[in-house]
Design a protein around this nucleic acid. Structure first.
Length: 203
DNA sequence: GCCTGGATTAACT
DNA sequence: GTTAATCCAGGCG
């Protein structure tokens, strides 16, 4: 594991802003992370897969930090998280958006419908696909091949706001657990959860 | 076992 | 703006 990854062994809400500007590499593509969401642990965060305790799907979240938690969603998509917290505690940071900084051709092959470069990894399932990450990669150590994770030398400026796609009314939407680099075009558009009536406040 | 709904996307009106 | 696609995990009986 690359030096400095010890900081990942902290709660996701603390780690999330530190991952903005980090570079994740896999399958010939380098991605600069521009948007993330924190998901917390057992009994704390109703929007988190770990809320009700450990299951087969979320087992990786309960393992050591610095590993990849990949899960299947909506019958067709894969989303990727970076596991945080010490071994035995569950929290993770969902990768929601990023900028392709190398291997654009490979990313385009995997994302033929992307209209523009910035759409290649704008959105959690798009990002995962552009990087060639699949369910097989669940549990992978991000510090070892075929992955590489480089944390930023200096913290990136960021804004925070409510998470996208997470329900309100105890679903955790009231907390500012979404973090992004302001003004970056690869940040995904905010969409409130269908169950949320009123428009959200961003920031 | 059966049923529900989802940390989404792309296509369409 | 709306909706179809698509399938598994989790919850419940």
């Amino acid at each position: 594991m690359t030096p400095g990854h010890g900081i990942l062994a902290r709660p996701a809400v603390e780690v999330a802003p530190l991952l903005l500007g980090a570079v994740l590499g896999h399958a010939g593509v380098l991605l600069r992370i521009t948007e993330v969401e924190a998901y917390l642990g057992v009994g704390v965060d109703p929007g988190s897969h770990a809320f009700r305790g450990q299951t087969r799907r979320n087992a990786t979240m309960f393992g050591p930090s610095g590993h990849l938690y990949a899960y299947f969603s909506y019958g067709m998509h894969v989303c990727a998280n970076i596991v945080c917290s010490p071994d035995g505690e569950a929290s993770a940071v969902l990768l929601r958006g990023g900028e392709i900084i190398a291997g654009e051709a490979s990313a385009r092959m995997r994302r033929p419908t992307a209209r523009s470069d910035r759409d290649l990894a704008r959105g959690p399932a798009r990002l995962t696909r552009a990087l060639g990450i699949g369910l097989d990669d669940d549990g992978a150590d991000l510090g070892l091949a075929p992955f590489e994770l480089t944390l930023p030398e200096h913290p990136a400026p960021f804004l925070s706001g409510p998470r996208t796609g997470v329900g309100g009314d105890g679903g955790g939407a009231e907390y500012p657990w979404r973090f992004w680099i302001p003004g970056d075009g690869t940040v995904s558009p905010y969409r409130r959860h269908p169950k949320l009536g009123a428009p959200p406040l961003q920031r």
